[in-house]
Amino acid sequence: MNSFDYKKEITVDSAIKAVSADYKAMFLAGGTNIIDLWKYNLAHPEKLIDINDIAALSIIEQLDNDGIRLGALVKNAATAYDPLVEKHYPLLSKAILAGASAQIRNMATNGGNLLQRTRCYYFYDPDVPCSKRMPGSGCPAIKGRNRIHAVLGASEHCIAVFPSDMCVALAALEAVVNVVGPEGERNIPFSDFHRLPGHTPDLDNNLQQGEIVTSIDLPPGKFSKHYAYLKLRDRHSYAFALVSVAAAFEMEGSTISKARIALGGVAHKPWRVPEAEELLKGRKTTVENFALAADRILSGAIGRGDNDFKIPLAKRAIIRACEMALEPEMQIPGAGPSL
């Protein structure tokens, strides 16, 4: 709600310089989250550095290794409908299109999607405690209304979930986040990008002040034949996931040669358990096998009352998403169960 300065920067270097020099400065890309947070008195930028015109970050390109690079400033809609993405990474297209609304996807950028903040009720209310907002103030969700909250990887300080759909697919696809900052470039494996809350729930991810996401690399493993994004929510569109699953396989005959399963709506970051995926390797596509993986993924899950259902629901959703991945052409708008 506060007033702020505004400046457009058209190079990565100048943008980084502007933000790293001033800890009250923030980048402005699509704005769909930062403007929302500012209007709720949750973000208080004193300077917004508009990076939308940095042309170098606004393209999707093929990489030499047969993967592709998604510019951080490409809009979510443009990414989902990009012919390269649609053809080679349809799982990503489906996940993006399951999120938000068409208007928001027209505005929101790929980099911004990674950096969006939780939709926890309590985080969004500046008048109540929240350790993510005010470190040490406590988490009212733990003993409050927590139907939408985390069952995996939470801490006594925070049980918020990360709301992105796109990132669930990016986790499954083992994307790499390319970052530039005052200290130079970094390439962060997707699983290391977001954090669990632990003692520092105020930190959503491992980006440092002044660092900017420049692009996201999708590796050559494309999973373009057997994939599904399943999203379960309280209305059929325009709602955040209570549980979502990105599932993808590579097959040799009727045997799974490689599996990827990532969950959304259950943790402070997209949830992946590589050991569970290993379990499926060399196995047939049976419900029993999917259930094995599901049990493994949910091991250690803790319900907090209202959200207890997420544990059995997530298991069933994993099994269903795995089944759906075998018939991707059946998938329906809104990423609901298609079988």
């Binding site: 939709r119 009720y121 309590y122 969004y124 209310d125 109540v128 409050g144 209304r145 939408i148 309280d234 209305r235 059929h236 569109s237 325009y238 709602a239 955040f240 708008p333 809104g334």
Partner: peptide, 17 residues
């Protein structure tokens, strides 16, 4: 207090419903 006092979390049907 009410904690979902917004149209994102107070769900009224969308066209898809």
């Amino acid at each position: 207090k009410y904690i979902n006092a917004n149209l994102g979390e107070y769900h009224i049907p969308s066209h898809a419903d």
